[in-house]
Amino acid sequence: MYPADFAYYRASSVQDAGRLLSEHPGAKLLAGGHSLIPLLKLRLAVPPALIDVGRIADLSGISVASDRLRIGALTPHAEVAASSEVATHAAALADAAGQIGDPAVRNRGTVGGNIAHADPASDLPAVLCALDASIGIVGAGGDRTVSAGEFFLGMMTTALGEDEIVTHVEIHSGQEHGSAYAKFPHPASRFAVIGVAAVVTADGDTCRSAAVALGGLLPAPVRASHVEQAIGGQPLNEASITEAAARAGDDLGDEILGDVFASADYRQAMAPVYVARALTAAAARAR
């Protein structure tokens, strides 16, 4: 496939990118390109200009400061998946990053690009919601931080303004909790038919608290509050996890996605199965 023509600008800094965005209405930001270029090739996106932010040095990398894990927007998924810091502080994120696309895709696709695109079948949004991550944004109106739960608004829709750029993701260090991601990949695209992230804090074999988020089957990820309440204070065994996971249906609302591979009914039925799998894996890491 062959993209339509566009103008190309290379941003030297976040500020430069912001300036270019305001100068070129309708322009799209280009990072790794693994969400955008497929759309350009199919001519489903025909932007007048691309602003390449891929070379802005300080947007990439993983660091831990005090109790915060910070991941730069340009950090490729492969780096997240392989990072010992991420594995220690946010294991579910490492799980998910390691299941995006395939190795070559993970080498180029970036965290910032992925979440700004907000594909409902993407893996990271649900994980960031469960981990209660905050998303750093820079724009003409200044810097701001948005929680993941408030960032993902709907199908490919985020809280990001026209002239704003995602700079990083921050996650509260989770050495005391266990987290995991359970995914039902589509056999062709390998996107998530369902992806469930769970974060469990345990007192021995008892769940002190849990955060569960579902992705893949909804326009935007949701926290499974009924499940979270049901498992809180319960023993982390198969019976109580299964019972709590069964509440997932109450958290899904009525916008469940379906396609020829997996209908909405089927995805709804699978939600408790994957919630239980994610909780079980997270619990094992929490102990």
Partner: peptide, 28 residues
Amino acid sequence: LWEHAIYDDSGQLVTGSLLDYALPRAAR
């Protein structure tokens, strides 16, 4: 296990690319 060319009621090929038409992959 995987492959199926599906047309919808209006005759559109729904599995119109490798994103939807599942070929065998090594890991399965």
